[in-house]
Computed example of a mutant assay.
Amino acid sequence: MNHYDLLRGLHILAIIAWMAGLLYLPRLFINHIANRDKPQVVEVLSGMERRLLRFIMNPAMIAAWLFGVGLIYSNVHDRFGWKFFYEPWFVVKMIGIVLITGYHHFLAVRFKKLQRGEDIGSEKFWRIANEIPAVIAIVMVIAVTSEMFTI
């Protein structure tokens, strides 16, 4: 196994962990909102939300970024040079990364508000918002794996 394959594998694993958190945290928010009148349930959900964000989502996001930068470096210096930067799939992926990272930070801010007892939206809002990372991921995977996004 060469270093590129190792980086790619670690990047994929980090993305899987990050996406799992991005899809699960809004579900915890829904349960938190639905049970806000039950202090014991809220306490358990708050702990789950905090641990998910702190011990899974944040490290996975950082790892995904670091391994992704490593892949870019490897592509530039060992494989293709700078030309892949102009490929439509790469542009779509970069836009997706910015959107997913922004969504991660949106969730982190909402978590802090929820911990302070502030309103973060309805269950319906979070059911809809929960689909955002999945849609972005679908677009990114299709862009990266499809020939229609290649010059």
Rank of each mutant, 00 (worst) to 15 (best):
L7H: 04
G9K: 01
G9H: 12
L10I: 13
I12T: 11
I12N: 14
A14S: 10
A14W: 03
A14H: 02
A14M: 11
I15N: 10
I16P: 12
I16R: 04
I16F: 15
A17I: 07
W18E: 02
M19D: 08
M19F: 09
A20N: 00
A20V: 02
A20T: 13
A20D: 00
L22P: 05
L22H: 14
L22F: 10
Y24T: 13
Y24C: 10
L25V: 08
P26K: 11
P26C: 15
P26D: 13
R27T: 02
R27A: 09
L28V: 04
F29D: 01
F29I: 11
I33A: 10
N35K: 12
D37Q: 13
K38L: 10
P39R: 11
P39E: 06
P39I: 08
V42A: 13
V42L: 14
E43Y: 06
V44P: 01
V44G: 06
L45D: 01
L45K: 02
S46Y: 06
S46G: 14
G47D: 03
M48L: 12
E49I: 09
E49Q: 04
R50N: 08
R50C: 07
R51E: 03
R51G: 00
L52K: 03
L52A: 04
L53Y: 02
L53N: 10
N58R: 13
P59M: 04
P59Q: 11
P59Y: 12
A60P: 10
M61L: 11
A63Q: 05
A64Q: 03
A64P: 03
A64I: 06
A64R: 04
W65T: 10
W65Y: 05
L66Y: 06
L66W: 01
F67W: 09
F67L: 02
F67P: 01
F67T: 08
F67A: 04
G68T: 05
V69C: 03
G70P: 01
L71P: 00
L71C: 02
L71K: 06
L71S: 08
I72E: 14
Y73A: 12
S74Y: 07
S74F: 02
N75T: 04
N75D: 06
N75C: 00
H77N: 06
H77L: 09
H77E: 09
D78C: 08
D78W: 00
R79Q: 15
R79W: 02
G81M: 12
G81C: 07
W82D: 01
K83Y: 11
F84L: 00
F84C: 06
F85R: 05
F85V: 05
F85W: 08
Y86A: 14
E87W: 12
E87H: 13
P88V: 14
P88A: 08
W89I: 01
F90C: 03
F90Q: 07
F90I: 02
V92K: 09
V92D: 10
M94K: 09
I95L: 09
G96K: 03
G96M: 05
I97K: 07
V98Q: 11
V98P: 00
V98S: 11
V98K: 12
